[in-house]
Each structure stands twice: as C-alpha cells, then as structure tokens.
Amino acid sequence: MNKIKSLDDLRKMKQSLEHGMNIREKSNSPESLVQIRVAMATCGIAAGARTIMNTLIEKIEKEKIPAVVTQGGCMGYCYAEPTLEVRVPGKDPVVFGNVDTQVAIDILDKYVLNGELLDGIIPTNYLTINEQK
C-alpha cells in the first residue's frame, strides 16, 4: 500500500476506506454499537492501557466487530488497571479489571461476540466515583 503522507493522499484513499468500513453504516445509529471504554488516567496508562487500546482496535478492524473504542478517566479502580467498561446495547455496562492483551481479546471473542461472561468483572452494579453520593 502506498504511504499516506498528505491530506491529498488521504483524500485519494477515501474510497477504499469507505469500502472496507464496518462502522459507517451503523454510525447513523451509534446506540447499536458496542462501546468499549478504556480507562486512561495516570493509573490506567501506567498499567498499559494504550497497549490494550491498540489491541482492541486492531482486532475490531480485522474481524469487523461492530464496536467502538472510547476513552474514560479514572473510575477509582486503580488497583485493577487496566480496566475496560463494555456497554453492549440493551445491557448494563460491565467493567473488567486487570485486562492484559489476552484478556482484551477474550472480552471481544467471548463477551462482545457471544455474550459469555468472563472472570475479572469488577462489581456487577457499580457507580463511578463521579456518580457516587
């Protein structure tokens, strides 16, 4: 593939981008996408959140998983970083702790695609620090 360096190069690539896109058709209804929020405060970043984010994005692209990766702050689970909050449409959000690249892949394969729960879920009903009190 040609290296893209300028905005013009990017413009030329647009069509092929559009072609391979798996989110576009769903972007009109973002609520139909699985939202995966990676905690990206100091604690999360230091524990490897960026690597997890890269792993998720790579796998979502390769397997055309209908999910988007977003970013959150510290939820107060600094001891369990990296943490992911996964919101599957129509279900309560679930927070997974101590996520490494393998667990991130398992979360996509098992929870997001098949609805199976995994070990490492933090509390089932939680309030973020901001929501408490």
Binding site: K3, K5, S6, L7, N22, I23, R24, I60, E61
Partner: peptide, 30 residues
C-alpha cells in the same frame, strides 16, 4: 482539516485510525 477531507467518515473507525496513525508517523519519521 482531516474531518473536512474525510467528509463524515468516522474518526473512530479502525481503518481510519490505522491510516491516520501511519500518516502522522511517516511525517514525523521524515
């Protein structure tokens, strides 16, 4: 500018992410 060029293609699409990362990286390396 990038959003203007992409004309509504979502920035959070993995293919877009890969391409933009490559673009910025190539310019920095250069």
């Amino acid at each position: 500018e990038v959003k203007d060029v992409l004309e509504g293609l979502p920035l959070n699409d993995p293919s877009v992410i890969r391409m933009l990362t490559g673009m910025v990286d190539a310019n920095i390396s250069d």
